[in-house]
């Protein structure tokens, strides 16, 4: 086995745009679940809606700022549509509605009905929507190598995308920190603990839950924009598995913590790449190449189970503030 290859591959995952996109989506989910106790099982749907909104606008020739705004706006509208009927009902209804709505978006996206915008199951290649974004780059054209990280500057999967993606993640962390150490965040945490108690203290619980759903959904929308930037808008790549991976990331890093989603995402993708690379090199006789992805999926599933059972507070979470029953 080539150790330096292994090292650079796994290290590359640390700062990959995908890692940042998942981290941002997990920060959004953290606002939903970690701080407010909302069971959003359709985070990937929020991302897909955002990605479609963005790609459609950019395809039509609009600039990146407007397109991204439209993308995030679509996710906000999506959150409102889902939240208005369900936030007054019991928690698991939100779970069923969000997972179903995410699936509806994916099914419509991959069908032929809107193929002028979505290009059906084949998806929209990045070259159709990322030109303006790359044109905004402040970096000179060419390649830059920093230690194990060597990428072209201004391509979809290059430095510029990484810089913007991680800047967005940092901004989101900062925002969450500000919000959650304010009285606004205190109300959210109160709702997570007991809705009725907060209601009895004169707060409009429905309004706060809606604000949380919209904020976390907007973050997912921008995460969707970041996620598709290097490759394409692929509806089937943004289905239920993606949502569940985001959950795993959140619980890995620790729900209701500030940096948990970011660290969780880094650990998740580095570990995944490490395992896949090692397996590919060590076990070619036992494994067929197409079995690598399923194997990684099995491990994610088992990790999720073990985490919830044995370390509900996540790897770095505070034992005292562990996720109890949120019902």
């Amino acid at each position: 086995m080539n150790w330096s290859d292994l090292l650079s591959l796994t290290a590359g995952e640390l700062i990959a745009p995908t890692t940042a996109a998942y981290a941002l989506a997990a920060i959004g989910l953290n606002i939903h679940f970690g701080f407010t106790g909302l069971l959003n099982m359709g985070q990937a749907g929020f991302m897909l809606v955002g990605a479609y909104g963005f790609a459609a606008t950019a395809q039509a020739g609009q600039g990146f700022p407007l397109s991204a705004l439209v993308g995030v706006g679509c996710s906000v509208v999506f959150a409102l549509i889902l939240g208005i009927p369900t936030l007054k009902l019991r928690g698991d209804y939100l779970a069923i509605v969000t997972i179903s709505a995410a699936e509806i978006v994916r099914l419509i996206g991959r069908s032929s009905v809107l193929s002028d915008i979505t290009n059906g199951a084949a998806g929209i290649p990045a070259s159709r929507f990322n030109k303006d974004f790359l044109g905004l780059s402040v970096l000179p054209d060419g390649r830059t190598a920093l230690g194990p990280f060597a990428y072209a500057n201004n391509v979809g999967d290059g430095w510029w995308t990484r810089i913007v993606a991680w800047a967005a993640v940092l901004l989101a962390v900062l925002l969450v920190w500000r919000l959650m150490s304010s009285p606004w965040g205190r109300v959210l945490k109160g709702i997570r603990e007991d809705e009725d108690a907060v209601r009895s203290l004169g707060k409009s619980v429905y309004g706060y839950k809606m604000q949380a759903l919209v904020l976390g959904g907007a973050m997912a929308g921008f995460a969707g924009v970041l996620f598709v930037m290097p490759a394409s808008v692929q509806p089937d790549a943004m289905g239920r598995s993606m949502t569940f991976f985001i959950w795993t990331i959140l619980l890995l890093g620790g729900a209701a913590t500030l940096w948990g989603p970011v660290i969780g995402s880094m650990i998740f993708f580095v570990a995944l790449m490490f395992i896949k690379t090692v397996m590919r090199d060590v076990l070619p006789s036992v494994l067929r190449p197409e079995q690598l992805e399923p194997l990684a999926g099995i491990l994610v599933g088992i990790t999720l189970m073990l985490l919830v059972i044995f370390r509900p507070q996540g790897i770095f979470g505070d034992k005292k503030e562990l996720m109890l029953d949120v019902r």
Partner: peptide
């Protein structure tokens, strides 16, 4: 808690389908 049980079943679902 029920929420945790639900997430465990999600993990099981992932593991089994893969």
């Amino acid at each position: 808690g029920l929420v945790q049980l639900m997430i465990v079943s999600i993990g099981l679902s992932l593991a089994l389908q893969y």
